[in-house]
Computed example of a mutant assay.
Amino acid sequence: MSQATAILGLGLIGSSLARAFKQRAAELTGRVIVYDRKPEVLRQALADGSADEAYQLDQMDSAGTDFTPLKDCGAVFICTPVAVIPRLAQAVAARTAALITDVGSVKAPLLTQLEGLRYIGGHPMAGSERVGYACGRASLFEDAIYVFCPPAGREQDPQVLADTAWLSALAAAIGASPLVLAAERHDEAVAAISHLPHVVASGLVNTAVGRQDDLRQRLAAGGFRDITRIASSDPELWSGICLQNRGPLLRQLAACIRQLDDFRHALTERDAEALSRYFAQARDSRDRLPDTDSRGSLQAEALLTAEISDRPGELGRLATLLGEAGISIRNMGIRHARPYEGGRLSVYLADPADLRRASALLRQAGYDCE
């Protein structure tokens, strides 16, 4: 399955896949053929080497798209909004016998609608509130879980097994951790840990600062911005996701509302013990989660935090100290308490065994670190 691989849609995920395939998995994917509705994006993909061939995509009228170049593809990745995936998948299947997969965050409805096609649902648990081709990067999938959902009842079919194995190998090649799940289990899980948080984050923003309250906006510091970051996501994309995963999301919303009702009752009754239990349960559950970066599975023992001032070159100085000591950094992120006043830097090390040495090195250089 290495003659060619196609990607339909070059937003954040699609463009990141294209880059990752070219840079890290060329032996598995072969030539990379891309489709997008924006001519300027297609030109950019060809210019920066993310694609070998590029064609115009009409998401709203698949009959208006020439899918002839897909004839010899081994696999087609559909990276468009969930609502248009079935229509595109049917059109693609009429032109090629290739494996069809997608990156949407809802799986059971798609598997039902695409029954009979050579289709395996896919969902890389990676992303950002940022969108568009320019935001894509080959490293997006590093340490992320990449879920694959084969058709129910056909998990042991030889073709399905072979396709799932190839997808899993490809996910591993681009740095992700493949995980095969039943579609219903996937949809219930993402309703709780992805879809509900988007709804709640949007509700917090609408409640707290949605009325153009200058004082609230000025006071909204790092904590509020952190927990509402995902409210900046694409509104049309997320309304479609919520509708597609309506049943599981409604169940999770009901559970969340019960939690808030319990809290409201305890607050109304001035029940300090119940309020304390509410916060303690959340703290304990949160503390049991593996400490991660924004994508998936970096463990707590690989994390170092340090106070850093807002001075030119300060971040480079810290990175140089570690680099010259042979300590590899996998990822970094900074949390500001207030703009332009420094903040707390999180440094994820590639090797947890380096943690103690890195901490000692930074303390010796004058950093307050944990």
Results as ranks from 00 to 15, higher is better:
121 G>C: 02
109 P>L: 06
79 C>E: 06
108 A>M: 12
136 G>A: 10
106 V>I: 14
117 L>I: 12
128 S>M: 13
81 P>M: 06
87 R>K: 15
96 T>I: 06
122 G>C: 00
102 D>G: 02
84 V>E: 04
135 C>E: 13
102 D>C: 03
106 V>R: 05
73 C>R: 00
102 D>F: 02
129 E>R: 06
94 A>H: 11
82 V>W: 11
123 H>A: 04
76 V>I: 14
84 V>K: 07
111 L>T: 05
114 L>M: 08
87 R>C: 13
74 G>V: 10
131 V>Y: 10
95 R>L: 14
75 A>P: 13
110 L>R: 08
109 P>C: 09
97 A>D: 15
128 S>G: 11
82 V>C: 12
100 I>T: 01
126 A>L: 01
108 A>T: 13
117 L>W: 07
73 C>K: 01
131 V>W: 14
96 T>M: 03
76 V>D: 09
135 C>K: 08
101 T>P: 00
80 T>K: 04
81 P>H: 06
135 C>H: 10
127 G>F: 05
126 A>I: 01
109 P>I: 11
127 G>V: 04
78 I>G: 03
87 R>N: 15
72 D>L: 14
113 Q>D: 07
123 H>R: 04
117 L>F: 07
136 G>K: 08
115 E>K: 14
94 A>V: 10
116 G>Q: 00
106 V>N: 07
129 E>V: 07
125 M>C: 08
86 P>I: 05
117 L>D: 08
91 A>I: 04
99 L>W: 09
123 H>S: 08
117 L>P: 12
83 A>E: 11
94 A>K: 13
73 C>T: 12
84 V>W: 11
75 A>K: 08
98 A>M: 08
102 D>E: 11
96 T>V: 11
116 G>L: 01
132 G>F: 08
121 G>E: 02
99 L>M: 06
104 G>C: 12
75 A>D: 14
89 A>D: 10
73 C>G: 05
100 I>E: 05
119 Y>K: 12
113 Q>K: 09
114 L>S: 01
134 A>F: 13
107 K>S: 06
124 P>A: 02
121 G>M: 00
134 A>D: 10
89 A>M: 12
97 A>C: 14
105 S>Y: 01
118 R>M: 13
106 V>L: 11
119 Y>M: 12
88 L>T: 05
120 I>P: 03
126 A>V: 01
130 R>Y: 14
101 T>N: 05
75 A>L: 15
117 L>C: 06
132 G>A: 05
127 G>Q: 07
